[in-house]
């Protein structure tokens, strides 16, 4: 099998989100490989170790720094990496992103048996790109997978958690799978593997390399646009109601009615 694993460079989970005007203040942010994508890479590497897969290609679209996320995927065990980076990509929404990723798959031979994604990226948190890629390629998909069995050349059996139970899907390959927490325990990239990752190929494509016109991506090629960012209101201090039970109840009711107007 040939597996594509999609990797996004996202702010570290400990990032303190700050704004500069109505834009994100990105200064001082440290970036990591999206934690859900780590599940995807790990799953692919396990398939390779089980001799079910021959090649794992890690793919990312993003600014130059996304290289680091790709190196991480290489250190976990991907064979090679592809980064699409181009100033014109700035402002691309999920659909524009999905279109670019589809082009990358074509460019890389189009012969992938399995497309693995994290179920969501912890920054944008849209959950959309994998399904859009599946739709554009007309491939079957299973999202939020917690267990996966693959028979190369034939099918994948994916288990999803749903309320009150599990849903088991059988998909013919090629298929899109998005990975959830619980699917596996990603390994730490060992120091020797980090060193080996440095020597693995990492190809960079611009839009031109992929035959994409700048108008199809970025703000112009997107159907949605981020107008501004706002921080959630700071949590105010709690309120303590004290006194005899009757007084407390009366005051609480008054508070719920008049101040926060929920009853």
């Amino acid at each position: 099998m040939k597996i594509a694993v999609f990797c996004k460079s996202v702010p570290d989970t400990e990032t303190k989100v700050r704004l500069k005007g109505d834009r994100l203040d990105t200064s001082g942010i440290k970036y990591i490989l999206n934690p859900y994508d780590e599940f995807a890479v790990e799953e692919a590497v396990r398939m390779k170790e089980a001799k079910k897969a021959e090649e794992i290609v890690a793919i990312s679209m993003g600014p130059a720094r996304a290289q680091e996320a790709l190196r991480n995927a290489l250190a976990i065990g991907a064979d090679r990496a592809v980064l699409v980076t181009d100033d014109a990509l700035d402002g691309s929404d999920t659909l524009a992103t999905a279109k670019v990723l589809v082009k990358v798959l074509e460019k890389e031979g189009g012969d992938f048996d399995l497309l693995l994604f994290g179920q969501r990226a912890i920054d944008g948190d849209t959950w959309q790109v994998p399904s859009q890629v599946a739709a554009l390629l007309d491939l079957p998909q299973a999202t939020c997978t917690v267990a996966l069995e693959v028979e190369p050349g034939s099918k994948a059996v994916a288990t999803r958690l749903v309320e009150g139970g599990e849903e088991i899907h059988e998909l013919t390959l090629p298929a899109v799978i998005t990975c959830s927490k619980g699917l596996n325990e990603p390994r730490y990239p060992s120091l020797p593997n980090i060193m080996k990752a440095k020597k693995k190929p990492l190809t960079t494509y611009s839009l031109g390399d992929l035959g994409i016109d700048a108008s199809e991506v970025g703000k112009n090629g997107s159907r949605t646009e981020v107008l501004s960012y706002e921080l959630p209101p700071a949590r105010g201090g709690g309120k303590k109601v004290e006194g005899e039970p009757e007084e407390v109840v009366a005051e609480l009711v008054k508070f719920l009615k008049e101040e926060i107007k929920v009853i």
Binding site: I32, E68, R71, A75, S190, L191, I194, M195, A197
Partner: peptide, 14 residues
Amino acid sequence: TEEQRMFAKTAEDF
């Protein structure tokens, strides 16, 4: 370097 930061992350995460 990027590689040094990766070494650090593995050590720290472990």
